[in-house]
Simulated assay, not measured.
Amino acid sequence: MAAWLRSVTDQLAPAIALLASRRSRRDSLAEVLTAFGYRLVFVDGPQAMVPADLASVETDLWLLDVAEDCESIDWLLGQSDVPVLIGVGDTPAIDSEDYPRWQRQLYNKLLPLLGSPPTGVAPTFAAAKAPGLAGCVWVLAASLGGPNAVKAFLDLLPTTLPVAFVYAQHIDAAFEAQLPQIIGRHNDWRVVNCVAGARLAPGEVMVAPIERSMRFGPDGDVRLSDAPWPGPYQPAIESVIDEVMRSFAPACGAIIFSGMGEDGVAACGRMRQSGMEVWTQTAESATCAIMPQAVQDAGHSSRQGSPEQLAGALRDWLEQEWAVAP
């Protein structure tokens, strides 16, 4: 039997209709969504539903947590006139360090689709309040021709901006130590190689390690592993983008500069689907356009430009989104 949840006090909150296969998942998700301040207008499993039932639900978004195909899911994906969000990931144990990240990831998926609810509590994260932490974090990703492009980009950006960068460059490990000098000369950015325990600060560019994988802890500190990056590329741009999004969303983005291959395309899609910016270097300005073009061809690039144009665009974006003083 469908459960309809309405209250007099939350009429202005965006409405969510929830379909989840398991009762335990419906209960836990309903609790979290209500705590965020959203209005649950429908909660049920998909098995007993028919299209006529779904069409009668007045909602701003359908949230689906289902493990099987059925008529109701097919109808929503093809006929719904409101957004349909599929999947929220496995819910970590409530006392684990990954639980706040999962909450924030879910909230950040809802935010660009529904906006902020007028009441409720947005999930917080220790890293967002750490002293000196960057206002937002962007990935600078590159391969062949990348160092020159990234340097040209940084040369035109003032270090007073409330942003830090994680620079993922496909390069032989023998040149990793030289990357800060290569891209940091002629500008005032603090370009550093990645070390365990470090935290990103405004005006800083952190070079992703080549032979060791990295992640960010609950308070934004760097965690290094002796395990290599997954996949054929070192570092794995795919993993770097996913990790930055997991740790800093929605205050993050990515720029794909000159390079070969298609590393990072899928992660760029996930970033765009979550409402964050993904920009790419134009083919005519790149030494090798294969990597940025792959992102653009997949429909994941929200802006294209030369390194110089992208620098100006980021300054404008920060002025709009973060109220940077001119």
Rank of each mutant, 00 (worst) to 15 (best):
R212L: 11
G231I: 01
L156N: 12
A196C: 10
R199C: 02
A177F: 09
F175Y: 15
A201Q: 10
P230G: 05
P202A: 13
A164F: 12
P232K: 06
A227G: 00
H170C: 13
F165Q: 02
I171G: 02
S247E: 05
Y167Q: 09
V163Y: 07
P218N: 00
Q234F: 14
Q181V: 07
A251P: 00
I171R: 06
A236K: 02
D221N: 04
P228I: 09
V244I: 07
I241T: 03
V207G: 03
R212T: 14
N193E: 06
D172M: 13
A164L: 13
L224E: 03
A249L: 00
M245T: 01
Y233P: 03
D242M: 00
C194M: 15
Q169L: 12
R215W: 07
N187S: 05
L157N: 04
P250N: 11
R185W: 09
I237L: 07
Q169K: 11
R246Q: 09
L224N: 04
R246S: 10
D226G: 12
A173R: 13
V222K: 04
V166P: 03
I171S: 08
P202S: 13
A164Y: 09
W229E: 01
V222Q: 05
L200A: 08
P180Y: 07
W229A: 02
N193L: 06
Q181R: 01
M214N: 08
Y233K: 10
D172A: 15
W189Y: 09
G197N: 04
P250C: 11
P180M: 08
D221R: 03
Y233M: 13
G217T: 03
D188H: 11
R185C: 10
P235N: 10
V240N: 01
P162A: 11
F175A: 14
P230S: 05
D155S: 06
L157T: 02
F248M: 05
I183N: 04
G220Y: 01
I210K: 15
S225C: 12
P202N: 13
M206H: 06
G231F: 02
A198T: 02
A236W: 00
I241W: 00
P209L: 11
S239T: 12
P180E: 10
G220N: 00
D242N: 03
D219M: 04
V207D: 05
A164V: 12
D155C: 02
G197A: 05
A236H: 03
D221G: 06
V195F: 00
D221Q: 08
T160W: 09
I237C: 04
F248N: 01
G220W: 01
P218T: 05
Q234N: 14
Q234T: 10
V222T: 07
H186L: 11
A168K: 05
S213L: 08
G217Y: 03
S225H: 15
A201V: 04
D219N: 10
V240I: 10
L224V: 08
L157H: 02
P202V: 00
D221Y: 00
A174I: 14
G220P: 02
V192S: 13
I237H: 03
F175C: 13
E204R: 07
A201P: 00
T160Y: 13
T160I: 09
D188V: 00
R185K: 12
F248Y: 15
Y233E: 11
C194A: 14
A198I: 00
L157F: 04
P250T: 06
A177R: 13
P209S: 11
A249C: 06
G184D: 12
D219V: 08
L179V: 15
E176Y: 15
V205C: 05
E176W: 14
E176M: 13
R246Y: 04
W229Q: 03
L200P: 05
